[in-house]
Every structure is written in structure tokens, then in C-alpha cells.
Amino acid sequence: MRLEKISIQINNDNIINSLDLKINSGEIFVLMGPSGSGKTTLLKGIAGLLPFASGKQTWENGTGTTGLVFQEPRLFPHLTVVENIAFGLRVRGISVKERKAMALNFLKNLQLESLENRYPHQLSGGQQQRVSLGRALILNPDLLLLDEPFASLDTSLRLDLIEWLYELQRNLGFSILWVTHYIDEALSVADRIGIILNGGLQQIGIPSELFQKPASEKIAQFLSLPNRFSRGQWRKWFQYELNGLQTQDRGWIDPKHLQLIDEGNRSGEGNIEEAACIISGFVTKVRPSREGYSITVLADSKSLEVNTTGWKRVPKLKEKIRIRVPFEHIHWYSE
């Protein structure tokens, strides 16, 4: 599916502005953006629920169909699981017998065998969302639109369903435009990720590209990239002219690449190669993480995040600390 110069207005306000997007066959395209950026509006526009003010939507094979799954399952409360799944088939005029057989057959894909006669309130949250997905998928859409489909579920169930849907998509081969605000969700399924801000797609790329080279400070901020500083600040810490493109005037570094230097053991300091610097600061926050600790250090009025591995040494609050910053791990991007 391809969108060319799409604009969508609600109450004369431009929510989507001249947006271009191409989703390839069998691809999972994850759309991310802050609240109010126009993600849901775009999905509703593609699904035909909102009209385009301008631009056009085209399909590789001339015509195409979409299926939309909302954040809440929105199952019809008076219909059973099978009747809910078969609703779209009923709309298409398929006979009762045929649509029931198709729906029952599809239950295997949804891992909902033996629940066909249950009503929505008799299902768990995860089962309800699977029925909702099944209701859209049984219509065999060319593009499945997902509007934060698992956001209302608890973490473990959410991860299970992401894995299940990913496997299902890889088996059946349909395309997905998947809206989420969970970065881990995006990274675990996306073939490509698009960032939408203020109704426009600001950057599209494969996940690693997006994190390594954010197109702007706004995107870096949205992605919650840590340790983002201007080239001038890095130059001050490194105390020499930095290599690289001068247009890339900001840089960030992953907290796991920063290394704490023990004040009691300065032996490591002598081995510092040229492409690294030492920053002194004070510990302002210590939080345990799965790998060890996440430590916030205040240096030159700037906060740095440092991740440590293991739980042996716990830095204390207000403790003076030194951090080794390897230059090669800084990712540079434009303001």
C-alpha cells in the first residue's frame, strides 16, 4: 500500500499533513509517536473511517483491503466467539453454515479451540484480543492495522501475544501497520519503524538505523535516548577537536558503554587510549536493574546515565565518581 501526500482534517484542524508512506508486502511497519501526533487518525484514514482531505491511497495490485484492531477488543457483547469472528463474513453475505465452518476452522490459528460458544465477558483479556484479531484476520486483509492492540494487557500477556501475532504474521504473510508506544514492542517485531510527529512522518528506517542515527533531537527525545549532548559539550569533555561531520552537532551514548572508574583504583586511568575521556561527577540516583545498577551522575551540570553489570559494588548517593567515555560509541546526529 502506498500513501501519497495524504492530509486528514478533523474539525478543520490538520491532523495529518501531506504524509507519504509505502508499506511492502508481508512487512511489519511499526508507527511510533507521542500522544496527539496523529497515529490513530492515520490508521482510521487508511481504514476508511476518516476521509482524506487530499492525497491518494494506492495498492500494488490495484485494490486492497484493510482490517483494523483497536486498543480495546470491542467484541459484540451479545454474540459468541464464533459469531464475533464471523461478523465480517456475515456482512459479505456468506451463508450461516459456511461462515460458521470458516470461523471454527480459524479458531485453531487463534488458539481458541473449544471456546467458540463463549460470550466475550466469559473470556480473559488476552483471549478477547485474540478474538478481535481473528475477526479482522478472517477477512484476509491485505493490510492489518493495529492501534496499540495490547496496550491494555499486563506485561507478560502482552509479550506472549506479541510473539504469537509475530509468528502468525510470518506464517500467513499479511502486512501490518502496527501503532505502539512501547519501544520494546517495536524492536521485537518491526521490519521498519516510522516516527510520526505533529502529523508528519519524520523518519523511517530499520530499528538499528533509527536508534543509531535519529534524524533530529525531537526524535532522539521521543525515543528517550540517554546521554544526549551537543558537540560543544562533548568537545569540552574530550578537550580536543572531534572528528566527524560538523552538521551532526549532537551525540548520544548508550549507558552500557560508559564505564565507572573506582576512585580507590586509578590504575585503569593510565591505560586510557586517545579516543576516550574521563568525566568527574557526583552520584545523584541509584536504581537497580536486571543487569546491575542504573546510576545517574551529575557532571558539569549535566546528567549522565551509566549502567553497570553485576551487583557487587553499589555506588552511594553523593559519592564522587569518575566515568570513562569511549569516543567510538558516541552516535552523532543533527539537531
Partner: peptide, 8 residues
């Protein structure tokens, strides 16, 4: 809206 996205 829900019925519409299913073609209703």
C-alpha cells in the same frame, strides 16, 4: 466504527 471496519 467497529462494524464499519468489518465492512458493515
Amino acid at each position: 466504527e467497529t462494524a464499519m471496519v468489518l465492512g458493515g
